[in-house]
Write a protein that binds this DNA or RNA. Sequence first.
DNA 1: CACTTGACCTGTCCGC
DNA 2: TGCGGACAGGTCAAGT
Length: 292
Amino acid sequence: MPELPEVESVRRGLADLILTKKIKSITIDNPKSFHGLKSEIKQFLIGASITAVRRRAKVLMIDLSTNYSLIIHLKMTGQLVYRGNDSSWGAGHPNDSLIGNLPDRSTRVTIIFDDKSKLFFNDQRKFGWVKLMPTALINELPFMQKVGPEPLTKNFDGQVLWQRLRRKQRSKIKAAILDQSVLAGIGNIYADESLLLAKIHPATLVGDLSKAQIKILTKTIKLVLQKSVDAGGSSSRNYVDAEGKRGDYLSGAYAYKRQGKPCRVCQTPIEKIKLVGRGTYFCPNCQKFDKI
DNA sequence: CACTTGACCTGTCCGC
DNA sequence: TGCGGACAGGTCAAGT
């Protein structure tokens, strides 16, 4: 499910909700969803307090006072939803969460805090995971070793993306920007969004793109990601933030899930094709496949 | 090496 | 209504 804007929205919400809280216990309903030793749970998780909530690419990191961290990947359908303790929950608090009582049948891991509030890791498809490991070793993870630059930082510009794409000359541009080792955080939705605004057909080979096109693509990547972060992310079906609320980005989407609807730029109907194994939406007028 | 395909899972939607 | 197949926001291990 979640790409950079969704994970960032969860991170922000979580930071407000759980920073400084102390972990009392953990419940693991699906063993495959949690990576970590029992001895480590006992020694470094139980009794620890939350010192930071960070994000890198689509990965969340919850740092603990024990110099351990919980690393979380939501993959396609993961959710991290916080719930206050029972008494405050039912006491007339406005409840606009989109998911009902927790835990439910998708709950895989539950973290229980000292004050009886809880953090639920829900994941319908069980692709996601929570991992307990020493904070200092996070950067040694294979994924962290290979992951590319964060697109919303100032030093990520056309020149950087041009360099990063050098070894992907024979890839389709959509496949290239979905590759987390090229740049961090783009997934299927924002790949299509940024390519439409850059007027680049998703099947164009990287080697056929001009430097000017890469520069424009860099701008549209930043634009759509920032716009979505500001909207609280996208919700196609499963995504909710730390409070269980959906994101708003898709109401203004250019391409994603808009097949047959008029392009917001030129009114031509958006088309859907299958590319690099993924559903792909594009405007046949704005994104002409005529480069070479 | 670069690139593509299948696998991991559950649920939903669509056509017959 | 039932059933099979395709598809769903990600990544990794295999294959070519």
